[in-house]
Design a protein around this nucleic acid. Structure first.
Lengths: 347, 347
DNA sequence: CTGAAAGCGCTAACAA
DNA sequence: TTGTTAGCGCTTTCAG
C-alpha cells in the first residue's frame, strides 16, 4: 500500500470477508446485509478506497466511456455542444472522452483508433472540414459500436444523426433580408461537401425563388469561411459595378461576416444603411460588434443532448436491430441591428 | 468474434503462436524475429485488430491517461490551453480526459473522483471560481498522482504550477494607460481568492504607485467579471461626480470590459476620446468591437504545453522526489484603439 | 527467439 | 446472505 491505494482485496482482508461480498457491498447490491454494507463502506471511506474503473470495465465489458470527436472546441458552437453532451452523458453514468481532429482527416482517423482502443461504448462525431469520405468509420460499424453524427456529416442512407435544419435556417434568414427590403442578396458559402454549408446554400436559393428574385452567380462566393475569407469576399462584392452590387449579405458563418463588416467599414460604408448583413451560428461576438449582427441560433446545447439520447437509444436496442434515425432541430432566427430595414428618416 | 473484435488470443491461435509472442510482435519488441513480426502485424491488419487499452493498462499499471480539469471550455482561453495540452500530451503518448467543473466546487470534487477512478497518471487543473480551499486534492497527493495547477490556483508552498505573470501583465497595461495620458484609472477586479485576479489588482496598484498616482477606492470595483458586471460597474463609475470620474479603465476580464464599453456607448460617450479602455485575456472578440480593445495575451497554448511538460517531469522523477516548481510565463501587452491617446486634432 | 504461467482489480455465475 | 472460482485481455518474468 505504498501510495494508500486500497483495493477490494485489501478491504476484504481487513474485514475478514470475501472480495465478492465487498464488491457487492460497494455496489449497493440488494443481496447484502445492511450491517455488512455499512461496515464495508465505512472502511472504504477510511482507507480512501477508489474503484478501479479499468478493472471493472475489463471484467464487465462495459467501459461506461463515450467518445466524442469534434473538429475543434474553439468558438461557441462545439464548446456548447460538448457541454450538452457532458450533461446528459454524466446523468446516464457515462464519462466522456473528447478528441479534436483539428479539421484534419488524418487526425480524425487516428482519433477513431484512439477511441476504439479506449473501448468507448459509442462515438459521437462531427466531421472535419477535410473529410470527403467516411470509410474510416467502417471499423466502428464492424465492431458494432454505436455511431452518431451531429452537425457535420456526409449524406448516406443509414446514418444516425442529429442536425440543425440548416436549410430552414438559411431560408428564414434570407426571407428576413428580403422582407427588410433587400433585392440583391449575396451569399458566402462554405465547402459544399459538408451538409451544413450545402443546405444553407439551398435554403438561400429557395428563398430567392419563393420571392421571384434572380440567382446571380456573381453574388455567390465560396470560401473556407474564416474571417479573412469574409474580408476578401466583401472586397470582391464591392468591386462590382453599382448596379451589380448587392444590398444584402447572408454569410454561412459569423466569422466571415465579421470580416465582411470590417471591410465595409474600412471602405466607409455603413451597416445596415448601405448593406444589410446576416450570419449563421450566433457566435458570442455577434452581439459585440457594431452594429450587432443578425444570426441564427443552432441549438448547440440541445444538439449535444439529443446526440447522447440517440446514442443511449441505440445502445439499449442494439446496433444491429436499431433502425437508423435522424433528429432534426429547428433553428431560431435572431434579428439584430445589422438587418434592420433602414428607416425612411435616415440618410 | 461476434463483432469482429479480434484479440491477441485470436491472433495467436490463427498463427499457431503463443500470446506472448504475438504481444511482443505487436509491440515491436526487439527480441522477435522479423518474419514473425511481419506475419503477426499482417494478420492483425486483416482481422482489424485493435488493442484493448483497458487490459493493457490494468496489467502494466500505466493507463497513459492524463486528466484535465477546467472550469469550462467556453471562450478562447481554456479552449486554447486544452489544445496546447493535447498537442504535447499526444506526442508523449498520453490520451487526455477533460472534465469541466462549471465553476462549481462540488462538480470539481466529483470530477476529481472520476479522474482518479479512471486511473489517470496525472491531473492538470485550473480551479473553479467557487473553490476556496483545496482539501479535495489531498487524495490526489496521497495516491501519489502528479498534480499540476495552471492559471487558477490557491497559494500554497508546495504546488506545481504554470501561471502567467498576471502581476506583470497588469502592471504593463496600467503603465500603458498612464503613458497614454490617464491619471484616474479605474479597475474592475475579480474574486480576490483567486491568484489571477489578486495579482492583476496588485500589478495595477503597483503601477499607480510607480507613477505617484493616488489609489482611489471609488475607482476599484469588484465583481464576477461577466459582461453584465461590467455594465453595472460602468454605471457606477459614470454616476460619480465629473471630478471623480475616471479617464481610464483596466478590467481584469475582457467580458466585463465589453459590458463597460456598451454602457459607455449607450450613454453617448466615446472610446478612447472620453475614456481609455484595456482588458485582459485577448479574447477573440476584442478585435471585433469598435474600437478594438487593448488586452493582454495570456500565452494560452504555451501554458498548456508547459503544464504537460511539468507533469512529464514529475512523472519521470517521481512525485515523492520531485521538488515542486512553478513556471511563470511572460504576458504580452496588445495595445489597440481603445487605449490610443486621443490626438490633439480630435474634438 | 519463443512459450508457459501468473496476475493486474474487479465482477458474476454457481454453490453453500 | 456470503464464499468459491473463474476469467476479462493483456504483459512479463522465467525457462527453454
Amino acid at each position: 500500500m505504498q501510495h494508500n491505494r486500497a483495493s477490494i482485496a485489501d478491504l476484504a482482508k481487513a474485514l475478514q470477508l470475501s472480495t465478492s461480498t465487498v464488491s457487492r457491498a460497494l455496489n449497493n447490491h440488494t443481496t447484502i446485509s445492511e450491517a455488512t454494507r455499512q461496515r464495508v463502506q465505512q472502511l472504504a471511506r477510511e482507507l480512501n478506497y477508489h474503484p478501479n474503473h479499468l478493472a471493472a470495465s475489463l471484467r464487465t465489458g462495459r467501459s461506461k466511456l463515450l467518445g466524442v470527436l469534434v473538429p475543434h472546441i474553439e468558438g461557441t458552437f462545439f464548446a456548447s455542444v460538448v457541454h450538452g453532451i457532458e450533461t446528459v452523458a454524466s446523468q446516464a453514468g457515462f464519462r466522456v472522452m473528447i478528441c479534436q481532429s483539428n479539421e484534419d482527416v488524418a487526425q480524425e482517423k487516428s482519433n477513431i483508433d484512439t477511441l476504439i482502443n479506449a473501448q468507448v461504448e459509442g462515438i459521437l462525431v462531427s466531421l472535419s472540414r477535410t473529410t470527403h469520405d467516411t470509410r474510416h468509420f467502417e471499423k466502428v460499424r464492424q465492431r458494432g459500436i454505436p455511431l452518431v453524427f451531429f452537425d457535420r456529416l456526409l449524406e448516406a442512407p443509414d446514418v444516425n444523426a442529429v442536425v440543425l435544419d440548416d436549410y430552414q435556417g438559411a431560408y428564414q434568414v434570407t426571407t428576413h433580408l428580403i422582407e427588410q427590403g433587400c433585392r440583391r442578396i449575396a451569399h458566402f458559402a462554405g465547402p459544399q461537401h459538408l451538409n451544413i454549408y450545402r443546405n444553407r446554400l439551398l435554403g438561400y436559393q429557395a428563398a430567392l425563388r419563393t420571392y421571384g428574385l434572380p440567382e446571380d452567380p456573381t453574388l455567390l462566393i465560396g470560401s473556407d469561411m474564416k474571417l479573412p475569407d469574409g474580408s476578401a469576399g466583401m472586397e470582391q462584392l464591392l468591386a462590382l459595378s453599382p448596379a451589380q452590387r448587392p444590398d444584402g449579405l447572408f454569410s454561412a458563418s459569423d466569422f466571415a461576416l465579421v470580416g465582411a463588416l470590417q471591410t465595409l467599414k474600412a471602405r466607409g460604408l455603413r451597416v445596415p444603411a448601405d448593406m444589410l448583413l446576416a450570419g449563421f451560428s450566433n457566435e458570442i461576438f455577434t452581439s459585440f460588434t457594431e452594429p450587432r449582427l443578425t444570426s441564427v441560433d443552432q441549438r448547440c446545447e440541445q444538439m449535444g443532448q439529443e446526440t447522447v439520447r440517440l446514442f443511449l437509444e441505440i445502445l439499449a436496442v442494439g446496433t444491429a436491430a436499431f433502425q437508423p434515425r435522424r433528429v432534426v432541430l429547428a433553428p431560431r432566427l435572431l434579428p439584430r441591428e445589422s438587418s434592420e430595414r433602414p428607416g425612411p428618416g435616415q440618410v
